[in-house]
Amino acid sequence: MTLLLVWILNAVALLIVAYILPGINVASFGSALIAAVVLGLLNMLLKPVLQVLTLPLTIVTLGLFLLVINALLFWMAGSMLKGFEVAGFWWAFIGAIVYSIATSLLSNLIPN
C-alpha cells in the first residue's frame, strides 16, 4: 500500500514540476505515473553505476557532480517517454532539483 502511495505522490511531484517550470511538460496524470516509474527504475539501476564510474569527479567537486547525474537521468527519462518532455539539460538540472524537493515534501504526508 505504501509503495502505491509513494508512486502516486511521485507522479504528483512531476505534475508540480511541470506546472512550475515551462521547459518541462507532462501530458497527463497517466504520463506522470509512467514517468515516475521510469525515473524510479533509472535511479535504481543506472544511478549506482554512474556514481561508481564518476567517483573521482564527484570527489573533486565535493559531491556536486551528483546533481549532474540526477539531471542526466531526469533528461533521459524525458527523452524516453512521449508524454514527458524535458526541453534541455538546464531544464533537466532545475527540474531534478525541484522534483527532489517536491518528493521530499510530499513524502512527509505518508505516515510511518
Score class of each variant (00 low, 15 high):
110 I>L: 15
4 L>K: 11
67 L>G: 10
42 L>V: 08
3 L>Q: 14
49 V>S: 02
23 G>F: 08
63 G>T: 05
18 A>H: 01
98 V>D: 03
60 V>Q: 00
12 V>Y: 05
26 V>T: 07
111 P>W: 09
12 V>W: 04
64 L>C: 05
36 A>D: 06
3 L>N: 06
37 V>M: 15
34 I>V: 15
50 L>Y: 10
74 F>K: 02
54 T>N: 01
27 A>H: 11
1 M>P: 00
18 A>M: 06
67 L>N: 07
25 N>Q: 15
60 V>S: 07
68 V>Y: 04
56 P>L: 06
19 Y>P: 00
2 T>G: 09
93 F>V: 10
91 W>M: 05
92 A>T: 10
75 W>I: 04
16 I>Y: 00
27 A>C: 00
5 L>I: 15
112 N>Q: 14
2 T>I: 10
84 F>S: 06
63 G>P: 10
44 M>W: 15
112 N>M: 14
26 V>Y: 05
70 N>D: 14
59 I>T: 07
3 L>G: 05
101 I>S: 07
72 L>F: 15
37 V>Y: 03
47 K>W: 06
110 I>R: 14
82 K>C: 00
103 T>M: 07
61 T>G: 10
6 V>F: 12
14 L>I: 05
35 A>H: 09
33 L>F: 03
11 A>W: 03
97 I>P: 01
29 F>T: 00
83 G>Y: 08
107 S>V: 02
